[in-house]
Amino acid sequence: MQSITLMGWHKRWHIPLFILCFSLLGGCTSVTLMSSYDEKTEQRVDQFSKSMNQLLVQLEDIDATAPQCAYAQHASTYQDLKVQLRIMHMHEQAKANNTPTHKQVASLQKRLQLLIDDHKRICQPAVAINIAQRQINSMLGNILKLEHNKRGAKPNNLFFAGAKP
């Protein structure tokens, strides 16, 4: 299994210190480390979530041996989903100070590709589709969680928004 490599932000507390010093020298302007909340991101996530879940619920209900289950029957839906994610990725990449959200969408693209590759190989049983669906929904939830925090940044509540199971 591959390991996850992030930028190691937790070990780089000197970075905010430098930013503070530069800001002070630069006339006490405010600091921006993260892009601001974008309603369009939320709309794109909602749209993708709806299309994705529609497909997965449909696939869950089809018997894995039935001809309607074949990849070819759903290829256009997968293409539409890929396009939606490409557009989302393009928009998130274009924003300044938005690396975490942009990378989250890139991860989601990889997850969708795994699903497509699996479906091309064989019709997946309902249990496997169910796990894939939960994984994709978790990833979408993580994108929304971060986006919501961009909107209402209250330091003490950041990590616990929606953390309760």
Binding site: I4, V31, T32, M34, Q104, S107, L114, M139, L146, P155
Partner: peptide, 19 residues
């Protein structure tokens, strides 16, 4: 990938907190 996405959310939320 789910884990990666979660850590990226935490990274972003940390940046917001620092900001």
């Amino acid at each position: 990938l789910v884990r990666e996405s979660l850590l990226l959310a935490v990274e972003g939320m940390t940046l917001i907190m620092v900001e």
